[in-house]
């Protein structure tokens, strides 16, 4: 079982993502943005950071990186794919997930421990959780406000494709307090907060984030 972690120029959280994958008991394969080969991985994580300096729009340039062509094909074929923060932005720019992430409504860069409610445990990345479970993981972004048109929002709600919502005050103006969503098939997940920074209490506020990485292991074994 091999999970690929992609590094774009400007990616920050690839090491923590790799550590989380290892911690969950899976082998990590590093993928470089310029690779046109997925090196036989079974699942892929697009970690957070500021790929290509967030030039143009967050994720807009990364979306056309050579590795992304292969990733888009693999995801359309059902491979589990998780985009965290900047990775979520890349998934939206690549149209693997609907909507877009825009500037936080108060304009501030946020960095704090955030409480979330898991609202779907049927995706490849959330099966270790129960619906209604509250977790605390770090949230750190400037452009984390999830926006989409009314029809898309209604579809996400009615199809149960919102995997996590912010609990308490809406930190960034996301529609319906959306923190993460999945595609129709449930293999592609985008999440704004950072589970890879909360896999043990030595380095994170909680170990609540580890479930994302153990979930994919279960999805792959199935």
């Amino acid at each position: 079982m091999k999970v690929g972690v992609v590094t774009f120029p400007g990616t920050l959280d690839d090491r923590d993502a790799a550590r989380a994958v290892t911690h969950a008991g899976t082998t990590v394969i590093s993928l470089w943005h310029n690779d046109a080969d997925l090196k036989g991985v079974d699942a892929i994580i697009l970690p957070g950071g500021f790929s290509y300096g967030d030039y143009l729009r967050c994720g807009a340039i990364s979306r056309f990186a050579p590795v992304m062509e292969k990733i888009i094909d693999a995801a359309n074929g059902g491979m589990p794919l998780l985009g965290i923060c900047n990775g979520f932005q890349v998934l939206c720019e690549a149209h693997l997930l609907p909507g877009a992430l825009t500037r936080n409504h108060e304009l501030h860069f946020l960095c704090r421990d955030q409480k979330l409610e898991i609202t779907n445990n049927q995706s490849a990345w959330t099966s270790s959780y129960s619906v209604g479970q509250e977790i605390v993981i770090p949230l750190k972004n400037g452009e984390g406000s999830f926006q989409c048109d009314d029809a898309t929002l209604a579809a996400l709600e009615s199809e149960g494709r919102i995997i996590a919502r912010y609990v308490g005050e809406n930190p960034n103006g996301s529609r319906n307090k959306i923190a993460g969503i999945t595609n129709e098939r449930g293999n592609v997940v985008g999440l704004m907060p950072h589970p890879e920074h909360a896999i043990d209490t030595l380095t994170g506020p909680t170990a609540d984030g580890l479930g994302f990485f153990t979930s994919v292991l279960k999805a792959l074994v199935k």
Binding site: T102, R103, N104, H105, L107, Q147, D149, G173
Partner: peptide, 14 residues
């Protein structure tokens, strides 16, 4: 331009 229905926090700040 951002679509009219999309919140533009930068525009609001200006």
């Amino acid at each position: 331009m951002l679509k009219p229905e999309i919140l533009d926090p930068q525009g609001v700040a200006v």
